[in-house]
């Protein structure tokens, strides 16, 4: 059995250098559509029309994307004569629409953040991407992020899924059991806007209709590094100025 030890060592360090260095290995992120200026209003209208989740709005020759609604069906990339521009990357964390600012956790928690994950009707993709953060390629432990099984020791409530009716009660109980100052992060389009499920007798159309959400990570599903960026924002180790380029050595 000791051979596992050697096999483990021989693999070497596999973890990404993010956030210390930029990460752009192919396949870490599917990217997402970005606001696009077309050459004609007709093209913009077509782009808005093809979007099944009304995430794209046309205004004259320009289109604007609400990433909280985008379900990454890629119709606007592959099924249009003139496709939307596509942006790579993953630093997508944003504020909920009803907020102008959210504060990160107090600095005492910055290097040791305990996370409670709740699956509130998720399809499995976002949850799976959260799970990937524990594999050696992302290894969120190295950054001081820990999953916890009890809300009593949790600093951050990470919710995936649109909040199904049968999970509303357990979700609220979890939140109530957490010590303040707690933060809530909605991960994935379903958790932000309800996604393809929308509002129904069984779906609450996102976490925001049940709990006060502090930060959102859009994407369907957001790739692991997008969620990691969200965690760094909650811990106050990354700023929300998503327009600035991926900076090196800032963590």
């Amino acid at each position: 059995m000791s051979f596992w030890f050697w096999h483990g060592l021989r693999k070497g360090i596999q973890s990404t250098r993010y956030p210390g260095r930029a990460e752009n290995t192919p396949g870490i992120s599917p990217g997402r559509p970005m606001n696009t200026d077309f050459s004609s209003a007709e093209e913009a209208r077509l782009a808005a029309e093809i979007c099944p989740s009304d995430a794209i709005v046309a205004h004259g020759k320009s289109t604007y994307v609400d990433h909280g609604k985008c379900v990454n069906c890629q119709l606007c990339l592959h099924s249009l004569p003139s496709p939307m521009n596509w942006e790579p990357g993953f630093e997508w964390t944003r504020l909920p629409a009803n907020r102008t600012e959210s504060f990160p956790l107090p600095s005492a928690f910055a290097k040791s953040t305990h996370i409670m994950v709740v699956d509130a009707g998720d399809c499995g993709a976002c949850l799976h991407e959260v799970k990937q953060l524990n594999n050696p390629l992302y290894n969120m432990h190295r950054l001081g992020f820990f999953l916890t099984a009890t809300p009593r020791t949790a600093d951050l409530l990470l919710v995936v899924g649109p909040v199904s009716e049968n999970m509303r009660g357990p979700l609220l109980k979890t939140w109530e059991a957490m010590p303040t100052s707690r933060k809530v992060m909605a991960v994935g389009s379903c958790a932000i806007s309800g996604g393809v499920f929308g509002r129904s007798f069984m779906c609450a159309c996102g976490v925001g209709s049940v709990l006060p959400v502090d930060f959102e990570v859009p994407g369907d599903p957001p790739p692991p590094l997008a969620i990691l960026h969200g965690l760094l924002v909650v811990a106050g180790r990354k700023s929300l100025k998503s327009l600035e380029p991926v900076s090196e050595g800032r963590s």
Binding site: H7, G8, K11, Q14, T25, P26, G27, I28, S29, P30, G31, V71, N72, C73, Q74, L75, L77, H78, A125, H128, E129, Q132, N134, N135, P136, L137, Y138, D220, P221, P223
Partner: peptide, 25 residues
Amino acid sequence: SQAAIIEENLLRASCVFADHRYLFG
């Protein structure tokens, strides 16, 4: 860990091949 690396590499290969890690769309 090693099986998880294999899985993540296949997720990345799916993304490179078909633009989505879970083969949506």
